[in-house]
Write a protein that binds this DNA or RNA. Structure first.
Lengths: 167, 167
DNA sequence: ATAAACTTTCATTTTTTTTTGAAAGTTTAA
DNA sequence: TTAAACTTTCAAAAAAAAATGAAAGTTTAT
C-alpha cells in the first residue's frame, strides 16, 4: 500500500467510525485528515481532499473547534486561515470525555434524578420504576465521577489506569 | 410528576441519548421501556406504548437480542412472546463494552495496523503519517485491553475501579 | 473609505437512515 | 393437516440528517 492510499483508507475508516459514535462523517473525516497532516491545512485544501463544499467544511470545522480538538492557525503574511488538530492522544481523549460528559451525561443525570424522585406509593410497577431509575442514576453518576477522576491525571492516564489494573 | 409522565420522560430521554451514541432512537426506547418494566412485555404492548409499527418493533427487538441485552420469555399457556431487558447494570455495561469492542474497535485496529505499516521512505509528510497512526494504534489497543481487563471483573467493576482510583 | 480575499450562514436540495405495512414465514393446538 | 395466532422480512415511503452554494458578513491592506 502506498501513502496516498493509506491516508485515504485512514480518513474513510475514521469517518465511518465517527458515524457509529454519533459524530457526523465529514466532521470525523476532517479530524482524521488534520490528525495525520504534519502541517496546518487550509480550508481550500480540506475541501479539495474530501471533495466537500465550502459551507460543509466551514460548519464542521467550527464544530470541531467548539469541541476544542481543532485549532485555527495564522501564518505570517497569509490572509487564509489554517487548521490543525490536537495531536496528543491523551489530551484528545480527555477533551472528548469532558465534552461528552457536559453535553450528554450531565443532562441525562438531571432527568434520572427527576424521574426517580416521584412518589411511588401504590403499585409494584411504580416501585420497580423508582428502584431501577435510582440504580441507574447511581451507576451513571459513579461512572461520570470515575471518568472525571481518570482524566484529571491528563498525561498518560491510560497507562496509569493499565498499571493500576495490572496490580 | 406522576408515574406515567415520569416513565414517558425516561423513555424519551433514553431514546435521545441513544441517538447521540449511534444507537437508533426506537431501539433505545424499547430498551428503556423494558428496563423499567417489572414484568415481561409483549410486542403488542411495546407497539402500543411507543406508537410504532410491528415491523419496527420486530427489527429492533431482534437487534437488542443480538446485542445480548434483551431476552425472549415464554409464558405458560401463551402463544405470544414476551421480552425483558437485562436489568443488572454491571452486566449491561459489560455486554455493551464487549459488543462495541468486537464490532467497532477490533476492525478499526486492523485498519490502523495496515495503514501504519506502509513503507515511509521519502517525505516528512509520510513519516508523520506513520508516526501518528502508529501512536493511534498503540493507544486504541491499550484502551481496548483496559476495557477488557475491567469488564473481566464483571460484578461491581465500576466500584472496584472507583476504589482503585481513590487510593 | 473601499475593494479584494476570505469565512459564515441558512434556505434548499440531496443523501442517509428509519419506519411502515402487507406478504411470507413459522409455530402450535386441535 | 390445517387454520389460527403469531413473528419476520423487505420493498417502498417517510423522516431525519447532512451537504450544497450563493448571498451576506468580516477582515485586512492600501
Amino acid at each position: 500500500m502506498e501513502f496516498k492510499e493509506a491516508k485515504n483508507k485512514f480518513v474513510q475508516t475514521w469517518g465511518a467510525l465517527g458515524s457509529q459514535w454519533g459524530i457526523n462523517k465529514t466532521m470525523a473525516q476532517i479530524h482524521a485528515l488534520l490528525m495525520v497532516s504534519n502541517e496546518a491545512v487550509s480550508m481550500e485544501d480540506i475541501m479539495e481532499e474530501l471533495q466537500i463544499s465550502r459551507g460543509n467544511a466551514s460548519m464542521n470545522l467550527r464544530a470541531l473547534m467548539d469541541w476544542g480538538i481543532v485549532y485555527k492557525e495564522y501564518k505570517a503574511g497569509e490572509r487564509r486561515e489554517f487548521f490543525t488538530a490536537e495531536k496528543d492522544l491523551d489530551e484528545l481523549a480527555v477533551k472528548i470525555s469532558r465534552e461528552r460528559s457536559k453535553r450528554e451525561i450531565k443532562p441525562a443525570l438531571k432527568v434520572l434524578k427527576e424521574v426517580s424522585s416521584i412518589e411511588a406509593n401504590s403499585t409494584e410497577e411504580e416501585k420497580h420504576f423508582v428502584d431501577q431509575t435510582t440504580k441507574l442514576y447511581d451507576f451513571v453518576l459513579k461512572a461520570d465521577n470515575v471518568l472525571d477522576k481518570i482524566t484529571e491525571y491528563k498525561d498518560n492516564w491510560l497507562t496509569q489506569l493499565l498499571i493500576k489494573f495490572m496490580k
